[in-house]
């Protein structure tokens, strides 16, 4: 379970203080699929970065499974990212020098696990996202949709507590986007917690719950399962 309590994030632009997030509180249950929506500059990526431990809040508290990720050292935060969080980015962020299976293995390689012990799991994950025949290809040899599938497999390799997806379909065509979102939905159905940031309402509808942000504050929180029911 992820808990966000009274979190604010401010930036300084000269003398001026700008609120990217303003006193946000939020609870994300295990196995939830939360879609965060909002216009550009509303603070959705900032919120995702804070939940993922890529950034620290100016005020407030954030917990993952009761473990605080605010006010801790950079090393502790990094280890939480490594073991508890899986990231999927809009621009994939794969290492161009590594092939698909190596990119998928990267989080465990960082944890010191020998490649020989990861390889099988990485290949299995690539097969599960439909890339069993592309394991040795480097990112430049893959299409956008394939690169995002590799990123999904990479996010799953550590069996994370949560997958954070920041506009994962923002760089893909509609057909491929649906495939990727379908993959995420399937993952969620196996019990994986997912937080998706998007400005596309169609993409957001793949989740179980949607929150809307505007000027750093939550303006709407809808449970889709309830509304569908």
């Amino acid at each position: 379970m992820i808990q966000v309590l009274n979190v604010s994030k401010t930036y300084h632009h000269g003398q001026q203080e700008i609120y990217a997030l303003n006193d946000i509180s939020l609870k994300i249950e295990k196995s939830d699929f939360l879609s965060i929506m909002g216009p550009s500059g509303s603070g959705k990526s900032t919120l995702l970065n804070l939940i993922g431990g890529l950034d620290q809040p100016s005020n407030g508290q954030i917990f993952i499974d009761g473990q605080p990720i605010h006010g801790i050292s950079d090393d502790q935060l990094t280890l939480i990212r490594r073991k508890r969080v899986g990231f999927i980015f809009q621009f994939f962020n794969l290492l161009p020098i590594l092939n698909a299976v190596e990119n998928v293995s990267l989080p465990l390689l960082l944890d010191g696990v020998p490649f020989s012990r990861i390889r099988e799991k990485a290949i299995h994950l690539l097969e599960s996202v439909g890339l069993g025949s592309r394991t040795e290809h480097r990112p430049e040899q893959l299409s956008g949709g394939e690169m995002q599938r590799v990123a999904i497999a990479r996010a799953l390799i550590t069996d994370p507590a949560v997958i954070l997806a920041d506009e994962p379909t923002g760089n893909l065509d509609s057909h491929i986007s649906e495939e990727i979102l379908g993959l995420l939905k399937n993952l969620n159905q196996t019990g994986q917690t997912i937080v998706l940031v998007t400005h596309d309402s169609k993409a957001a509808s793949f989740g179980k719950r949607i929150i809307r942000l505007k000027d750093g504050s939550i303006t709407e929180d809808i449970s889709l399962s309830e509304s569908r029911a």
């Binding site: 993922g52 890529l54 990094t78 990212r81």
Partner: peptide, 16 residues
Amino acid sequence: RREIGILRALGCLRRN
């Protein structure tokens, strides 16, 4: 820089 950013995001420590 981008590679460093990705590694850091995926859990690579500063000292590493």
